[in-house]
Design a protein around this nucleic acid. Structure first.
Length: 355
DNA sequence: GACGCGTGGAT
DNA sequence: TATCCAAGCGT
């Protein structure tokens, strides 16, 4: 439900600012053109979920060069896709990206649905992404609410209810200021504002184009919005990983599709539980690296104890896996935790070689 | 609605 | 150094 007056002023103020100050981003059509490619918009939106623009940049360029169309992506091998995504995090996105591309290719003739509902039915496309693609790629009026919009709207309207309980009110407020025309530009303008001016910490209210529309700027601390519930403390866990080497190769496994680092290549490892002395995947003369690999995940921090050993040419650990050439370890697509473990082994080898 | 799910940069 | 934070989604 759109309310005339203040809401109209907010949209026009913001769009006028956007026309001059819009960030130039690789996935954005040039100013004045209506050439937004749904595939590119969708690809960028999925990569940008919970991920910074700076981190996405090189991945977006790599993906677009390698898979220029949704059909190209749909035809890719799972392992290639997962390896290309390695390092970007939240790997369920990569699995859903491929599932979505294949669904578009198979069920929609290679053409993305142009409605929010149609988009919403695709794997990995939630409320935010469906609205963003509908607005940005198809020019439809959709209420696009991400963390930036939540913050900007909570401040514009000085919404004091803590998140996540405030979400319905924030969404209604966002709906009230979303214009019928240029909804895609409006959404991107809101996100630009949140990323560059109405930032989480130290917002630059002095140069904000919505300063005279904002309720929070009249308060003692605009940055206090949105109010958030207290966070839980992050537990710490210890795990073990094994570097099994044989004739210039290392044994890599593929992690189960569900759960942490799902579907990714990895070193064999223990559960991240409390098992003090887990059983190695193969009997060998193990050496343990002195310094654990420290890594922080969203919901726990981990100290990975890395063990390494050589095995004989006829030995192979039980279960599925592959001998991967160590001089091409960079191409294995290891997630960051295991890439660091591999680095730790390499460094120890180099140190040993000097002694 | 809560929880699980990565990573790296900024403060 | 520790904490916060980033264009969320699926269960």
């Amino acid at each position: 439900m759109r309310v005339e007056g203040r809401a109209t002023k907010i949209a026009s103020d913001l769009l006028a600012h956007y026309d001059v100050h819009a960030r130039r981003l690789p996935w954005r059509a040039p100013p004045g053109s209506n050439a937004a490619d749904p595939y590119r918009v969708w690809l960028s939106e999925v990569m940008l979920q919970q991920t910074t623009v700076a981190a996405v940049g090189p991945y977006y360029a790599k993906f677009l060069a390698r898979w220029p169309t949704v059909q190209d992506l749909a035809a890719s091998e799972d392992a290639d896709l997962m390896a290309a995504w390695a390092g970007l995090g939240y790997y369920a996105r990569a699995r859903n990206l491929l599932a979505c591309a294949r669904a578009v290719a198979r069920d929609h003739g290679g053409v993305f649905p142009d409605t929010e509902d149609g988009l919403r039915s695709l794997p990995g496309v939630g409320a935010y992404t469906a609205a963003a693609v509908a607005a940005i790629a198809f020019g439809q009026r959709a209420v696009v609410v991400d963390a930036n919009v939540e913050r900007v709207v909570a401040r514009l309207f000085a919404i004091a209810t803590p998140l996540p309980a405030a979400r319905p009110a924030i969404r209604a407020a966002a709906d009230s200021i979303t214009p019928d025309a240029r909804a895609g530009d409006f959404a991107q303008a809101m996100m630009d504002l949140g990323a560059t001016i109405c930032t989480a910490r130290n917002p630059a209210c002095g140069i904000c184009p919505l300063r005279e529309d904002c309720a929070a700027v009249l308060t003692a601390d605009p940055a206090a919005y949105p109010v958030k519930a207290a966070k839980k403390v992050r537990p710490h866990r210890t795990g073990h990983g094994w570097w099994i080497e044989r004739d210039g190769h290392v044994w890599l496994v593929r992690r189960p599709d569900k759960g942490l680092l799902g579907g990714m290549r990895a070193l064999p490892s223990s559960d991240w539980g409390d098992a003090p002395d887990p059983t190695p995947p193969i009997a060998a003369r193990w050496t343990t690296i002195e310094t654990d690999v420290a890594h922080v995940f969203t919901h726990f921090s981990l100290a990975l104890r890395v063990h390494h050993a050589h095995v004989e040419a006829n030995e192979t650990p039980e279960g599925a896996g592959e001998w991967w050439p160590i001089d091409r370890i960079g191409e294995a697509g290891l997630p960051t935790l295991f890439a660091r473990a591999a680095d730790a082994v390499r460094k120890e080898r180099q140190a040993d070689a000097r002694n």
